[in-house]
Design a protein around this nucleic acid. Structure first.
Lengths: 335, 335
DNA sequence: CTATATTATGAAAGTGCTTTCATGAAAGCA
DNA sequence: TGCTTTCATGAAAGCACTTTCATAATATAG
């Protein structure tokens, strides 16, 4: 293979000019840690001197892959998404894949992504976070061989990482009941956008189960939905003003639990003496405010998703996997 | 070379299925006049039958049709980074650019990114968040003509979005002084990784300036560095145990201010009566805990970076810009 | 009908890059 | 000081196509 007199130098030219082999040039560019610092420096200098620019198509050809992993995620307003994204990024980072983020802010958008991303074949893998995927979408993804991992949404024909929300609700309920509470209320999420999934419903179901098992009533006024942010609305306040005020509340998310905590304190209620609170998620700040909560391992779920994806990319023939992440009750000072 | 069982056939598959050679397939596709009408017809039919799409084309098309904006960021442990990233994503999302995230977790990595991203990854633009960029790096970026925007780090020859940390420190100091405090301490960051920048130093400088202007002393034991997380270390505790305890503390970040708040409460100090606290950043939870702080518009900085980038991509000839984001004192209940 | 010019086609040699494997050198260890 | 490990490097085998070059097939002319 001869270096060319072309206006576009190749790695062969770089190799010759630097007195190294093409392999070393390639490595210096793609996995610098495999090359000594001195050589790396030498390579970069030569590259600059002769004005070499690697050709993307040749690279893709040799690589047989685009080297890209897409992450479709409802846009990260929630603190919990962030931890997950961090897990994803941390896992992708040491590989040579790049992480392409596709934020979703409407249901058309997710539709659009699922339909077009596989077609262009510009991705090796796709991680879909907390979004519903229809059978049709799943079929398409499979047909076009885009390795896919779903986080927090189940689908039989795709790899999934699931959270057992029902179980989580059950745990929270049982825990509060074991603590002796009999009047326990539930706070769900009122304002999730249409494209989001609704894990809080299953959390409520689990909680209901715990209550009925214990023979405790769960009157309708004990179940209320509030917006998903720290500042809760009137209905949360109303809950605390009921003639028969609950002695404990299970909030479907930590953010709401924290809002509740604030309201309770404003009203002069002592936590946990007058009111016990259990959240869900275990976001970073839960520890700070001492919130008892059901921990779902956000970071780990993201990391796991990537690992699952990578393993499937290496061995496409292994079966789809459905991982279920263990939940964990973290007891702090609000109960 | 064997034809594959892939649902994405190669020309080898087409060749085999049609009983022709790969060369002919290639010609039929690229220079049809060199092939007889009959063969051409035959080729086209089999192509249709087995659903062949040339891979290289698909890749090249995919890479060209959408622009790519790279985001190099120290990996988002801090809540503040997240808001910025959100701003970036929100601004990219409506355009037809893709957002490619390159997390940095070591100084070699940032070096490598700055050196190779511009040439290897065919990026249209690059946003570098909170990372130092050397003159050498800057020169390289310019030479490779990758439009670049630096957030939180100044460089004369690149677009930048800066925060006036000095001014912020000054504001915090002046505010506390105006409140009548005379013994004011400062908490900086002890454990930033080597690859990170150090805005807290300039915040301290500004703060120092405010103190000296007011003729107030800032004894050495009033300046201490603690790890960048909520759980502060001993030196923060020691600060509150000093015989001449400060009546106010300016923390270089909200996270540390919150940690301090917790310690102060544990020690039975009333905030703000016994100890006033001012933070820096205005992270989401600052409002929740009622922290007085210097707000830097994280979200906006991210959004602005993208807008700046896009405008430069449209008109590459306009001058580099250096935007300075206004800081804002948000008064809440810790002062 | 031969001899010759024209095509249409396939074998095989590129294309510019990545990666595996083997090797020589340097480093660590007894 | 000799022996094992580790590390940096190069040779060479792909990758999915394109192109060159030689050849078989056909057409054209004499």
């Amino acid at each position: 293979m001869k270096p060319s007199r072309d206006p576009f130098p190749t790695i062969y030219d770089v190799a010759q000019a630097s007195g190294l082999s093409i392999a070393t040039i390639s490595r210096a560019l793609n996995s610098p840690e495999k090359v000594s610092a001195a050589t790396r420096e030498r390579v970069m200098r030569t590259i600059e001197e002769i004005g070499f620019v690697p050709k993307a198509d040749a690279r893709a050809r040799a690589l047989q892959s685009t080297g890209r992993i897409g992450v479709v995620t409802p846009f990260f307003t929630a603190p919990s998404f962030v931890a997950r994204l961090r897990g994803i990024a941390d896992a992708i980072s040491p590989t040579n894949y790049e992480m392409v983020v596709y934020p979703v802010d409407s249901s058309e958008r997710i539709q659009h992504y699922v339909q077009t991303l596989p077609l262009t074949r510009s991705l090796d893998g796709l991680i879909i976070v907390s979004m519903a995927v229809s059978d049709e979408d799943a079929r398409r993804l499979r047909e076009y061989q885009v390795e896919t991992v779903l986080i927090e949404f189940p689908h039989p024909s795709l790899n999934t990482i699931e959270i057992d929300d029902f179980e989580g609700g059950l745990m929270a309920g049982q825990y509060l009941i074991a603590k002796g509470h009999e009047r326990i209320a539930f706070i769900g999420v009122a304002d999730l956008p249409e494209y989001a999934i609704h894990p809080e419903n299953r959390r409520l179901l689990g909680f209901r189960k715990a209550m009925s098992r214990a023979g405790l009533p769960l009157p309708e006024e004990y179940v209320c939905n509030v917006p998903y942010r720290i500042e809760l609305n009137e209905s949360a306040r109303r809950l605390l003003d009921l003639p028969e005020r609950p002695t404990a509340i299970f909030a479907a998310t930590d953010l709401q639990a924290m809002g509740l905590l604030k309201i309770a304190r404003e009203k002069g209620l002592r936590v946990p003496e007058d009111l016990a609170i259990v959240g869900f998620d275990d976001i970073d700040f839960a520890d700070y405010v001492g919130l008892t909560t059901i921990r779902q391992h956000m970071y780990r779920s993201g990391k796991l998703a990537v690992e699952l994806l990578l393993s499937r990319l290496k061995q496409p023939d292994i079966d789809v996997q459905h991982l279920k992440l263990q939940l964990e009750l973290v007891e702090r000072s609000t109960t």
